[in-house]
Design a protein around this nucleic acid. Sequence first.
DNA 1: CAGTGGTCTAGACCACGCT
DNA 2: GCGTGGTCTAGACCACTGT
Lengths: 266, 266
Amino acid sequence: MPINPTDPRPAYQQIADDLRAQIDRGDLRPGDRLPSIRVLASLHDVAQMTIRQAITLLVNEGRVSTRQGRGAFVREPQPVRRIASSRYRTQLEYVQQAGKAPPAPGTAFTGDHQIAWHEYELEKSFSRVPAPPVVADLLEVPIGTPLLARRFVFYARSRPEQISTSYYPLSLVEGTPVADPNNEPWPGGNIAQLATLGVHVTEVQESVRARMPTPEERQILQIPRGIPVLTIRRRMLAQGRPVEAAVDIVIPADRVVLDYTIELSS
Amino acid sequence: MPINPTDPRPAYQQIADDLRAQIDRGDLRPGDRLPSIRVLASLHDVAQMTIRQAITLLVNEGRVSTRQGRGAFVREPQPVRRIASSRYRTQLEYVQQAGKAPPAPGTAFTGDHQIAWHEYELEKSFSRVPAPPVVADLLEVPIGTPLLARRFVFYARSRPEQISTSYYPLSLVEGTPVADPNNEPWPGGNIAQLATLGVHVTEVQESVRARMPTPEERQILQIPRGIPVLTIRRRMLAQGRPVEAAVDIVIPADRVVLDYTIELSS
DNA sequence: CAGTGGTCTAGACCACGCT
DNA sequence: GCGTGGTCTAGACCACTGT
């Protein structure tokens, strides 16, 4: 099984393509170990660095992951959570049912993950900052306007799943429960929380992008090589007035689907 | 500027982190050429392969791109197009204004790109296929049900921007304009087209994911290393009945933002 | 032609995981 | 201890770009 010298593709490409084909055909299944670098090197009669180059290619495609001392493995599909745009409507229940028996405590995050309240953890850090340009634009306030910044790292069953930083005009939330970290997590999430201030969110706008994570994001969210992140830039409006902006919500892309519904009134 | 042997990070990591910091600080700006591999190697007193490893890291983060014979360059931000969920409502104008003067011809795609009708090109290939499991599920038909499959590659100003394959129940569209490739592109897009059959789309559902592109997608869409793709799985419903499914729409993630609006009736 | 990145070799030693 | 991947060397030659 030596490589084909007449093939215009370089050796590492041929080998990577061969391995990828084996994965696609099912000869190598998710979780399977690839032949070791030394075995592949002698099999194709090339140097180990050439094999390494082939495997690096597959790692950066998100198809393979390597573990030192153990081997290279076909990546397994991750359990996916669906993030539905309707999650914001669910939060309304906490507002509208005031006075009645409340639903089980939850937030947009617990609903997305289908996890119980106690399996949900938060790292939080609140601060007061002058509005950066991007946030000022979203909130429709002058640059430098005093804002409350709330940074969260969300964990589901002790696994980091999401980073977000959200901003509120300080004039709206200073001295209220929104500005007190001890109130987080708040049953019903921030829409319910804002409602206690008499601020009723009527519209949520989300802008979705994807990119490779920064090294810092990779470390915090424990993202393997070859996996991008989805980013959501969000703002919440109350009667047309922006009251919250999130810049950005960052989620590893191998574990999530974003569901949106667009109604076309006929 | 030799590397620090007491630093626990490997040499290629130190060098990559150093280059990344220079980019983040603005010492290296988008479009700038990095020092050549040979220069960096002698500067840090390491082998060229070590420098190469550092640069490969940055390439796979989407921060740097290399061009043979020319050098390694800091990647420039791409002009972004916004894809708004409201684009589907715009298409309704072509339906509702029947009989009146129609708006300028366009589709969801031309609107997204802000390009003129004549700057828009299509590669199309239509076929009849039995419903694969995923599509059958979306269309709520038995697996194997005869479907029309329409595969498109969209070009804006001769640049490939998007791949999509959409499916319709053949019983719904056989013998209609929908099944005739010569009708594409259709002014107003497929919502307007379906309306001519008396099928009025009332709801569109989209599921957004991100992943690294396959080699085939990288080739067709000319995607540089380190850039993920956004995928949209879509279906259109007419009075609650699925009439179209797209599996999947694939878009390079460095050139696009997906905008969604969620209305919360208060 | 000189300078760039791309491919490749034939080793070496290290760090890690398992038995 | 042994097999795994990770890092690294000191070269070589190829392919491409621009002068």
